[in-house]
Design a protein around this nucleic acid. Structure first.
Lengths: 108, 108
DNA sequence: TAAACATACAACCAAATGGTTACATATTCA
DNA sequence: TGAATATGTAACCATTTGGTTGTATGTTTA
């Protein structure tokens, strides 16, 4: 079988600048939706949709607390991006990465 | 003034799996369009559009050679992604990154 | 309990995305 | 030169994306 087709992959999730800004905000602090929305020049509904996409990519999660919904960061899925990037590091003169590839990659 | 709004930023460019696969192919070798297109189950025209987007992100460039157009990889713009990612490395237990942030980041 | 607050959700919309087919043009080769 | 090859490009299409407004629901708080 093929890979278990992720509903929203992390590459798509981080493609949008608004969503990257949300991640930055949540890296500082967990926050309720309204506080996140205050940082943007768009409706709370629009922000909520971005939060859903980030949630599907498992980059954030929200818990209900009273009438608020508090979102927090889960940076782990970003390792997928990091791994993908590491393949290209050998091309741009990062000596540590080159060494890593020298050791690990037969074809290098 | 704001930043000089890039026509196609690198995050959008790498968001699509087809385009990531193109980058991988060109990491192995420079190739003409038709050879790239052969790797995909879609029309040459569709592949050409992906090549345009990657070109606008300056991740690849093409030169005309006879009747062929040869594309090659330019991985440099990926450093922008790498830099963006590095901010989150302090969260996932990479000791080198943590050290880096300890040294560089006052608020850490 | 009534008002204010925080969120949820449905319905709608314009533009972007990712693909197609058809046809035109430039280059090479027999 | 004529056919085959490689690419360019226009026109079109369905779906996704990123946003909106309006209304409903649950939770504090005065």
């Amino acid at each position: 079988m093929a890979a278990p087709t992720e509903k929203h992959d992390v590459f798509k999730a981080i493609a949008d600048p608004t969503r990257r800004e949300v991640l930055r905000l949540l890296a500082e602090n967990e926050r309720p939706i309204s506080e996140i929305a205050d940082h943007f020049d768009m409706s709370r509904t629009a922000v909520t949709k971005h939060l859903q996409i980030l949630t599907e990519a498992e980059l954030i999660s929200g818990r209900k607390e009273g009438r608020e919904k508090i979102y927090q960061l889960h940076p782990e899925p970003l390792t997928e991006v990091k791994q993908w990037l590491s393949y290209y590091e050998k091309f741009w003169g990062n000596k540590l990465a080159m060494l890593k590839h020298l050791v690990e990659d037969e074809n290098y």
